[in-house]
Design a protein around this nucleic acid. Structure first.
Length: 196
DNA sequence: GCGTCGATGGCA
DNA sequence: GCCATCGACGCG
């Protein structure tokens, strides 16, 4: 079942947590690929210094100020595209960064890390503003939700003052596809204590 | 197994 | 001049 506008029109923190275990679907021509989302990050609005919208309404951030359920895609470090899902209602610039997923079916590709994920799904700036309630790129419910969801600090936002400490990253601790995780992967006992 | 670093482009 | 990154490399 395709996620409707109402799913996205909620706070990014709620959407980020609920997206773990859901299936991202991409249709390009007759080809369709699917992957299970295992890692997300919430960017919660203009007051969140790690959120691009903290710079206010610009040509780049405009889409984040719009209705939830649209894609926000941008290029970072001149190399990697990032796929975000706009959340909340018009005027409230919140978004969720999709950071990692597990390819489904016969599809073999590395979707660990937001750069790899965008490359695997062939997401580029031309997909910016794409409506996720349409048929080209959308998300559906997974068969089985993950038994647990862990929370940690967001990755790569050291510049954002106290916002870097907020636990706004959500992940499936049992997935091998989570980024920056194997290194410090806690024991099952520790992971349990992280559960959201 | 770990830290460091270079690539490269849009944006303010 | 800054980055919501990745992967290669060097050290040990």
């Amino acid at each position: 079942m395709k996620l409707a506008r109402s799913f996205y029109s909620r706070p990014a923190i709620t959407v980020a947590r609920e997206l773990i275990g859901k299936i991202l679907v991409r249709r390009v021509g007759t080809r369709e690929v699917r992957a299970r989302i295992v890692e997300t990050e919430a960017y919660v609005g203009e007051h969140d210094l790690a959120c691009h919208a903290a710079k206010g309404r610009t040509a780049r951030t405009e889409v984040m100020f719009g209705m939830g359920g649209h894609a926000y895609v941008y290029l970072i470090y001149g190399i990697h595209h990032m796929l975000n899902v706009v959340c909340s209602v018009e005027g409230d610039a919140q978004a969720v960064l999709i950071r990692a997923a597990e390819p489904l079916g016969e599809w073999r590709v590395n979707l660990t890390g937001p750069g790899n994920l965008a490359r695997g799904f062939q997401i580029s700036r031309s997909d910016n503003r794409l409506d996720l309630t349409g048929d080209a790129l959308f998300i559906i419910n997974g068969c089985t939700p993950p038994p647990r969801v862990a929370r940690t600090q967001r990755v790569g936002v050291d510049f954002s003052g106290h916002w870097k400490n907020r636990l706004l990253r959500f992940l499936d601790p049992d997935s091998p596809a989570v980024s920056h995780w194997k290194k410090s992967r806690p024991t099952k006992r520790e992971a349990k204590s992280h559960c959201a």
